[in-house]
Amino acid sequence: MNHKAQIKMGETLGVLIVFFLIVGISIGFYTMIQKDSIKTRAREQLEKETIRIALKAAHLQEITCTQDRDIEEVNCIDWYKATSFKQVIESDQQAFLFYEADFRSSKITLQQVYPVDPALPLTLDLYSNPPKHVANRIQTAIPVVIRDPTIANALQQKSIGLLFVEVYS
């Protein structure tokens, strides 16, 4: 009788062990799928972040061309505003921290494409804040008009450029 009870107990324990084993394997499998899904979501988030930062950079009041007090020229960047913006955030830590709230870990570069004005640098790093360890990066380029307001001829004021936005995670 004692032996019979021991067998019964062993059976119960066996069932429990198998049950928890199956639960454990299921949790492991679920975690593995979740890890993949987290990676995909992180990539999606970075893509959205890139769009957000690119939009903000292309419409940044501080660098865009204006015709009058609040009429913006779409996708037009004033070279002198951009240069001054770069100087301000490089010389003023408070200003850099202010724009960091919007641009976070990214690099924003303005590049002349055509016609290239040899008197001006080919590229202008407007903002640069890469993290110490880059796990992921996405770059996007926005075609823009670059305007040099010092040129008297309105037709020659404008050239084609690219605004590169690289976002890190």
Partner: peptide
């Protein structure tokens, strides 16, 4: 910041 940029 904008005023500083316009100043520069």
């Amino acid at each position: 910041n904008v005023a500083e940029i316009y100043r520069g």
